[in-house]
Simulated scan of single mutants.
Amino acid sequence: MTNKDISRVKELLEGNKKIVIVPHKGPDGDAMGSTLALKILLEHLDHYVQLIAPNDYPNFLKWMPYQDEVLIYDRDPKKCDDYIAEADVIFTLDFNHLSRAGEMYKPLKGAKASFIMIDHHQQPDDYAEVTYSDVSMCSTCQMVYHFIENIGLDEKITPQIATCLYTGIMTDTGSFRYRSTTSLTHRVIADLIDKGADNTSIHENIFDTSSYGQLQLLGCALQNLKVVEGLRTAYITLSQEELDRHNFKKGDTEGFVNYGLSLEGIVFAAIFIENEAEKIVKISFRSKGTFSVNDFARRYFDGGGHINAAGGKSDLSLQETVDKFISILPTYKKNLAL
């Protein structure tokens, strides 16, 4: 953040303000961790704060502090629209284009509030009065930690805030294994533990709460795992019928794509998940090294994200989507060939 940004944020937070905080549609651990941490901090500063998620989020995140105070937009849009219209300041966290807020796009676009963006994804839009964007950061939660430092409130980090920030950093770095995890990230994590984050219980709450159906679905996904010979690529498919058969719930496929990447010699992995309700195929991409799945997702599948982790979607059928994916791979033979 620049000194000008820091000064402007402090001005915007003077007095008691009505503040709305928004994560992206389909919130993950980083989105919910960063927004909940900021909500707790700003409420401690006597602001009136409402966190509004565009839609529901996975059960494995619903142990987090204050999550029961989150409004879900698609459950009560009128109430949420009123909060957005009355807000003095709106924080958007872990996304950088208002379209990523789903059905909240229109009310956010029409809001009179001052916007503050905190995000680590590539190619940010310019809708915010203050934009704190850093694509080198491993997570928005780490950025919120530095945001709190920059505005001089690091002593206000409570055990609850530390817990939320640790959760987002841990989940967005694959438990600290991704390339974006730096020595600074580890120093931040150490400070969060010192400030009260219980790392053991956080990991247990995230990773040790699988349902029987979820593990059966994982088995199905691994049965469907395919390798594209000669192009160091693996992919998984899950049809709507397979999801239904295993009582799929939001968040159940979290991390499945990484199993493809765990195969020896694989540098590019994808998972294709059929969603009949939305009439799309949802896609997650992962890679190792310099192969940019962000560029790949943006170019071919209406998505984006980071160099080594991105998402996309397809309006084609599941099989047509997979066929399209396979047909594109030879274009990247120089990057993917053995």
Rank of each mutant, 00 (worst) to 15 (best):
K4H: 12
E14M: 03
E43K: 05
R187N: 14
H120F: 02
V70Y: 14
F115W: 09
G102C: 06
I157Y: 02
G15C: 08
I273W: 09
F60I: 06
H146S: 05
C141E: 07
N224S: 06
E320H: 11
S34N: 01
L98C: 08
Y212C: 06
E278A: 11
G33L: 01
Y212S: 06
Y300F: 14
L165V: 08
I116S: 11
I202R: 04
L184A: 14
Q319E: 15
V70R: 14
L165N: 02
F296K: 00
V144I: 15
N275I: 12
C164S: 07
E276A: 11
S239E: 08
Y127T: 01
Q223S: 13
A111P: 07
N308C: 12
S284K: 06
Y145S: 05
T140H: 11
E149L: 10
R286S: 09
K156Y: 08
S317K: 10
I148C: 02
A221L: 01
K226N: 13
H44K: 14
F301A: 04
I266N: 00
L336V: 11
H246S: 04
D88N: 15
L218H: 02
M104V: 12
I169D: 05
T171W: 09
S327D: 14
Q214E: 09
H97Q: 13
E229Q: 12
N16A: 06
T200P: 00
Y166G: 13
L225N: 07
P58A: 01
A337Y: 10
Y178S: 07
A277G: 04
L153R: 08
S114T: 13
N55S: 15
D81S: 03
I148E: 06
Q160N: 13
D56A: 10
L316E: 14
G174Q: 02
G230H: 09
A277N: 11
K39D: 05
F248Y: 15
F115H: 05
T331H: 12
P77A: 03
E204D: 12
S292G: 00
D154Q: 12
A85T: 09
K249P: 01
L98K: 15
Y66L: 07
A297N: 04
I266M: 03
S314E: 14
C138K: 09
A269V: 03
V20G: 05
S284Y: 08
Y132T: 06
Y57T: 06
L329F: 12
Y178T: 14
Y166I: 08
H120V: 02
R8D: 01
T171P: 02
A221H: 05
G196L: 08
S114E: 15
I157G: 00
F248N: 14
K4W: 08
N258R: 04
L243V: 10
N199A: 14
V281H: 05
H186D: 05
I116K: 11
R299H: 01
W63L: 01
Q223E: 14
V267C: 06
N308I: 12
S114V: 05
D88M: 11
